[in-house]
Amino acid sequence: MNKYIAIIFLFLCSIFNLHIKAETLRSKQEIIIEVKILEKISVDITKKKPAKVFVIGYDKNYIKKYAKKLIVVDDCNKADIIIAKEEKDIIFSSCKKKIPGIALRYSLLKENKNFIGALFWYKGRPNLVFVSFRLKQFQIKLPKSYSKYIEEQIW
Protein backbone atom coordinates (compact mmCIF):
# COMPACT_ATOMS: atom_id res chain seq x y z
CA MET A 1 0.00 0.00 0.00
CA ASN A 2 2.78 2.41 0.96
CA LYS A 3 4.52 1.81 -2.35
CA TYR A 4 1.40 2.88 -4.24
CA ILE A 5 1.11 6.04 -2.14
CA ALA A 6 4.77 6.82 -2.86
CA ILE A 7 4.29 6.33 -6.59
CA ILE A 8 1.21 8.59 -6.62
CA PHE A 9 3.12 11.15 -4.61
CA LEU A 10 6.06 11.12 -7.02
CA PHE A 11 3.69 11.45 -9.96
CA LEU A 12 1.92 14.44 -8.39
CA CYS A 13 5.23 16.09 -7.49
CA SER A 14 6.50 15.61 -11.03
CA ILE A 15 3.43 17.27 -12.49
CA PHE A 16 3.60 20.17 -10.09
CA ASN A 17 7.33 20.54 -10.58
CA LEU A 18 7.09 20.96 -14.32
CA HIS A 19 6.34 24.62 -13.83
CA ILE A 20 8.63 25.27 -10.85
CA LYS A 21 11.38 27.67 -11.86
CA ALA A 22 14.98 26.58 -11.78
CA GLU A 23 17.10 27.37 -8.73
CA THR A 24 14.14 28.35 -6.62
CA LEU A 25 15.77 26.75 -3.61
CA ARG A 26 18.56 29.30 -3.39
CA SER A 27 17.99 32.45 -1.38
CA LYS A 28 17.55 35.78 -3.08
CA GLN A 29 20.46 37.25 -1.12
CA GLU A 30 22.77 34.53 -2.35
CA ILE A 31 21.79 35.11 -5.97
CA ILE A 32 22.22 38.90 -5.67
CA ILE A 33 25.75 38.60 -4.32
CA GLU A 34 26.65 35.94 -6.87
CA VAL A 35 25.58 38.30 -9.65
CA LYS A 36 27.52 41.16 -8.07
CA ILE A 37 30.66 39.00 -8.09
CA LEU A 38 30.13 38.06 -11.73
CA GLU A 39 29.55 41.71 -12.54
CA LYS A 40 32.75 42.81 -10.85
CA ILE A 41 34.83 40.06 -12.47
CA SER A 42 33.39 40.80 -15.91
CA VAL A 43 34.05 44.52 -15.66
CA ASP A 44 37.59 43.97 -14.33
CA ILE A 45 38.39 41.49 -17.11
CA THR A 46 36.91 43.44 -20.01
CA LYS A 47 37.68 46.92 -18.61
CA LYS A 48 34.29 47.93 -19.98
CA LYS A 49 31.26 49.46 -18.27
CA PRO A 50 28.83 48.06 -19.16
CA ALA A 51 30.29 44.79 -20.33
CA LYS A 52 28.29 42.66 -22.75
CA VAL A 53 27.82 39.10 -21.54
CA PHE A 54 26.65 35.98 -23.27
CA VAL A 55 25.16 33.48 -20.81
CA ILE A 56 25.06 29.68 -21.08
CA GLY A 57 23.07 27.58 -18.60
CA TYR A 58 22.60 30.41 -16.14
CA ASP A 59 19.43 32.42 -15.56
CA LYS A 60 19.73 35.59 -17.66
CA ASN A 61 17.04 37.27 -15.59
CA TYR A 62 19.30 37.33 -12.54
CA ILE A 63 21.87 39.35 -14.45
CA LYS A 64 19.26 41.64 -15.99
CA LYS A 65 17.74 42.26 -12.58
CA TYR A 66 20.75 42.62 -10.31
CA ALA A 67 23.74 43.73 -12.48
CA LYS A 68 23.74 47.35 -13.54
CA LYS A 69 27.09 47.17 -15.28
CA LEU A 70 26.30 44.17 -17.47
CA ILE A 71 24.22 43.83 -20.61
CA VAL A 72 23.02 40.39 -21.65
CA VAL A 73 23.38 39.71 -25.38
CA ASP A 74 21.89 36.86 -27.38
CA ASP A 75 24.68 36.60 -29.94
CA CYS A 76 28.06 35.49 -28.66
CA ASN A 77 29.79 37.49 -31.40
CA LYS A 78 28.52 40.66 -29.75
CA ALA A 79 29.71 39.65 -26.30
CA ASP A 80 32.79 40.82 -24.39
CA ILE A 81 32.69 37.83 -22.03
CA ILE A 82 30.87 34.52 -21.62
CA ILE A 83 29.44 33.25 -18.33
CA ALA A 84 28.66 29.53 -18.42
CA LYS A 85 27.35 26.89 -16.07
CA GLU A 86 26.98 24.22 -18.72
CA GLU A 87 29.33 22.76 -21.29
CA LYS A 88 28.18 23.73 -24.74
CA ASP A 89 31.36 23.75 -26.79
CA ILE A 90 29.43 24.31 -29.98
CA ILE A 91 28.57 27.82 -28.80
CA PHE A 92 32.21 28.71 -28.28
CA SER A 93 33.16 27.23 -31.64
CA SER A 94 30.34 29.04 -33.38
CA CYS A 95 31.65 32.39 -32.17
CA LYS A 96 33.72 34.07 -34.86
CA LYS A 97 35.90 35.85 -32.35
CA LYS A 98 37.64 34.25 -29.41
CA ILE A 99 35.88 35.35 -26.25
CA PRO A 100 37.08 34.67 -22.69
CA GLY A 101 34.72 32.77 -20.45
CA ILE A 102 34.01 32.48 -16.73
CA ALA A 103 32.90 29.01 -15.66
CA LEU A 104 30.47 28.39 -12.83
CA ARG A 105 31.66 24.80 -12.49
CA TYR A 106 35.30 23.84 -12.05
CA SER A 107 35.08 20.90 -14.43
CA LEU A 108 34.32 23.33 -17.26
CA LEU A 109 37.64 25.04 -16.67
CA LYS A 110 39.41 21.76 -17.29
CA GLU A 111 37.36 20.84 -20.31
CA ASN A 112 37.33 24.04 -22.32
CA LYS A 113 40.35 26.26 -22.89
CA ASN A 114 38.18 29.33 -23.52
CA PHE A 115 37.54 29.61 -19.81
CA ILE A 116 40.07 31.81 -18.09
CA GLY A 117 38.65 31.34 -14.61
CA ALA A 118 35.93 29.80 -12.52
CA LEU A 119 33.63 30.74 -9.67
CA PHE A 120 32.45 27.56 -7.98
CA TRP A 121 31.59 25.90 -4.65
CA TYR A 122 33.95 23.35 -3.16
CA LYS A 123 33.69 21.80 0.32
CA GLY A 124 30.96 24.25 1.25
CA ARG A 125 32.95 27.35 0.40
CA PRO A 126 32.97 29.58 -2.70
CA ASN A 127 36.19 29.54 -4.71
CA LEU A 128 37.46 31.90 -7.37
CA VAL A 129 40.28 30.74 -9.59
CA PHE A 130 42.00 32.24 -12.62
CA VAL A 131 44.53 30.33 -14.71
CA SER A 132 47.61 32.41 -15.49
CA PHE A 133 48.46 30.89 -18.87
CA ARG A 134 44.90 31.29 -20.08
CA LEU A 135 44.91 34.93 -18.97
CA LYS A 136 48.08 35.41 -21.02
CA GLN A 137 46.49 33.77 -24.05
CA PHE A 138 43.70 36.33 -23.91
CA GLN A 139 46.14 39.10 -22.95
CA ILE A 140 44.16 39.91 -19.86
CA LYS A 141 45.75 41.69 -16.93
CA LEU A 142 43.72 41.61 -13.75
CA PRO A 143 43.98 44.19 -10.95
CA LYS A 144 46.35 43.38 -8.08
CA SER A 145 43.48 42.48 -5.79
CA TYR A 146 43.03 39.29 -7.86
CA SER A 147 46.61 38.06 -7.46
CA LYS A 148 45.73 35.54 -4.73
CA TYR A 149 43.17 33.93 -7.02
CA ILE A 150 45.56 33.34 -9.92
CA GLU A 151 47.00 29.83 -10.18
CA GLU A 152 49.67 28.41 -12.43
CA GLN A 153 47.90 25.21 -13.26
CA ILE A 154 44.54 23.50 -13.32
CA TRP A 155 44.12 20.84 -10.64
Binding site: Q29, E30, I33, P126
Partner: peptide
Amino acid sequence: ISALLEKYEQV
Protein backbone atom coordinates in the same frame (compact mmCIF):
# COMPACT_ATOMS: atom_id res chain seq x y z
CA ILE B 1 36.45 40.90 -4.72
CA SER B 2 37.59 39.24 -1.48
CA ALA B 3 34.93 41.10 0.53
CA LEU B 4 32.26 40.03 -1.94
CA LEU B 5 33.39 36.42 -1.76
CA GLU B 6 33.30 36.52 2.02
CA LYS B 7 29.72 37.78 1.95
CA TYR B 8 28.81 35.23 -0.70
CA GLU B 9 29.96 32.51 1.67
CA GLN B 10 28.02 34.03 4.57
CA VAL B 11 24.67 34.24 2.79
